[in-house]
């Protein structure tokens, strides 16, 4: 195993005005491992992802990606460049496919930057040069490989928006993989899947981990998924990290049990208020 972790998050803090969504969270993710991020609703899991993939600029913190092709400080990189240069890919909690385009087109758009270069920034493509045609064939091959992996080859020409929900989830993962990432961030990939689809998803993720050897960050509510396939779990609650370790360690951690069972979840309350209430509750108990 590598000594330097693929992703090193140090003291990540994200404030929105007075609201502290993430408060001084540090963790790391390694190559060839699935790192699960769990926590009750509103714990700041998706905010961590948004910071990692450049949708938010973190207020404080260092996000270092030690990829084989170089080291990147994600907090200093512009949104789309994180995907383009640092090669961090992500999926979304609410599926964001290009619904009006075909399944195959979704996978080819994901290879945009490579194809753009090969099409001579459109000029070679307009002139129908062989270089661009070869690159396009290659991109179709890659798309086909992933279509075979997720079992959607026969529906390659469907409009992506017409696919069943579970297929859309898998297509989004395949699309992220088509960008050739070093780190794959999956935001609740099992949400809305039935037990069978969820099991298939586990298999797919384990395969990706084993064959591609990339790091996977996984936000998930479904404990059966996380506990089963994660090598390492980070637990967030109200923006703080409350536990970090192997699944069996995390499962027994009293802080985690309290977070999941001992407190009422209330999405309406901002974290500080909820935290304040919780502290008062504890004080009263003592």
């Amino acid at each position: 195993m590598n000594d330097v972790p693929l992703l090193n998050v140090e003291h990540l803090t994200m404030r929105f005005g007075g609201l502290v969504a993430i408060d001084d969270v540090s963790f790391s993710a390694r190559n060839g491992q699935i790192t699960g991020i769990i926590g009750p609703n509103g714990a700041g899991k998706t905010t961590v992802f948004n910071c990692l993939t450049g949708f938010y600029k973190p207020s404080v913190g260092r996000l270092a990606l030690n990829a084989p092709h170089g080291t990147f400080l994600l907090e200093q990189t512009d949104g789309f460049r994180i995907a383009q240069q640092a090669r961090v890919a992500r999926t979304f909690q609410n599926i964001r496919l290009f619904a009006g385009m075909s399944v195959l087109e979704n996978l080819i758009v994901a290879q945009h930057n490579k194809l753009m270069k090969e099409s001579g920034f459109t000029i070679a493509g307009l002139l129908w040069l062989p270089r661009h045609r070869a690159a396009e064939r290659q991109s179709v091959e890659l798309a086909r490989y992933w279509l075979d992996r997720i079992g959607l080859t026969s529906r390659a020409d469907w409009q992506a928006g017409n696919l069943p929900y579970g297929d859309q989830r898998r297509l989004e993962i395949a699309r992220a993989m088509c960008t050739d990432p070093v780190l794959l961030c999956l935001d609740e990939p099992a949400a809305g899947l039935n037990a069978r689809e969820s099991a298939e998803l586990n298999e797919l993720l384990l395969e990706i981990k084993a064959q591609q050897g990339i790091g996977i960050l996984l936000i998930e509510h479904d404990m059966s998924v996380v506990m089963e396939i994660s090598d390492h779990i980070v637990v967030l609650d109200y923006g703080r990290k409350i536990s970090d370790g192997r699944p069996d360690q995390v499962r027994q951690d009293p802080a985690v049990i309290r977070a999941y069972l001992g407190e009422e979840e209330d999405e309406e309350l901002p974290p500080e208020v909820a935290e304040d209430l919780a502290q008062r509750g504890e004080a009263g108990a003592i």
């Binding site: 789309f80 995907a83 240069q85 964001r96 496919l97 290009f98 619904a99 385009m101 994901a110 945009h112």
Partner: peptide
Amino acid sequence: EDETACRALG
């Protein structure tokens, strides 16, 4: 179709 997804794809 989706600008956010485009940014996520680089």
